[in-house]
Every structure is written in structure tokens, then in C-alpha cells.
Design a protein around this nucleic acid. Sequence first.
DNA 1: GCCAGAACTCTGG
DNA 2: CCAGAGTTCTGGC
Length: 186
Amino acid sequence: MILREEMEVRYSSVDCPLGRLLVAATRSGICFLSLGETDAPLEAALSSDYPAARINRGPVSSDWIEALLAYLNGETRNLDLPLDVRATEFQRRVWQQLQAIPCGSTRTYGEIALALGYQLTAARAVGRACATNPVSLVIPCHRAVREDGGLGGYRWGLDRKRALLAHERALTLGQAQASAATFRLF
DNA sequence: GCCAGAACTCTGG
DNA sequence: CCAGAGTTCTGGC
């Protein structure tokens, strides 16, 4: 990930249906999100992505955290939160495509490549751009899947990707309550 | 700059 | 079904 000197990052972590959720933000928006079992690896991932930033545990907008939890609890389907992420032009275009995928559906890496005007073979590069998305959930990289029906990969664990897609599918079918109640990993 | 390696996809055996 | 090649981009050296 790109480093920005003198960047001030605060982070906070909470329990959520998928385990631990770490939210990191600058003054202007969310710059990093991670999901895992325990805080330690999530903190390590944060510093690894922002090696030059001044990172401290501290208050993060409760509105943002509430919005994320509401989404994970099936109370809302859209996440429209301010972001503060650095990206190459290509990444920005891919991430924009990801955000255009409606909750409950998916696109293949190849479809995204074509939508951007590239050859189908650019799918691999699209996968790379998805993999380096620093703000999962808000930029829904879990909605990108393989052409052959496979899930592809997920930085925070394929079980979470699978759970997120099942959750969103259920939400779309109007089974929010059922989904919220059964949202689990294994 | 150059290079190896990707969260891919298609082809051929 | 598996191996290999082709495409496009990125991070590290």
C-alpha cells in the first residue's frame, strides 16, 4: 500500500457477526478496514499497509462504526461512508466498478475487466486490484468472483467472503431477520 | 527501469 | 482434470 508521510491514523475495533472488525480512519474518512479473529493480526495488517503513518488506537466516528455494524447485522444494505484511500488510476476504476455492484449480486473478474474497456484477459489484473482494496465492505470486493463459479480469494478469509455473499443474498430476498440470526462463519 | 508474481481465464492434451 | 500460456498491473529491487 502507498504510504503517506505524517498521516494521522486512528483505529478502533469492535465485535461483529464476522468476528473482530477493525476500523481505521484519518480526519477525512476511513482508510482501512479489516476482519479477523483477534486484534493483533488486524493491527499488524494496518501498520503493514501504512508503514509511514502515525497510528494510534483512538476514537473513530461512532456514526461510521454504527453504519458498518448495521450493515453486518442486516439492518441496512448500503454503506456510503467517506473514504480516504490512496490508489492508482487503475485501482480507482476497478473499485468504482465494485461499488456499482448491487448488494445481493456478484460480477466476475472478467466482467469487470470488460466493463472497463479491457480484454477479458485483464481479469487477472482486476483480481490484483480487488486484492489491494484497503476498505473491504465499503468497497465490496467480496462481490467479485471467478468465472468458473469459484469464489476467488479474500484477504480476510474465504469463509467470510462466503458468509458475506450468503448474507447479502438473503437480504435481497427479504430475509434480513433470518440472515442476521444465522450469520456465522462455520 | 526491469521482473516476478497475482483474489484470472482459456486452451489442449 | 491438470498444465501451460496469455494479459495486465503492481511492488520490490
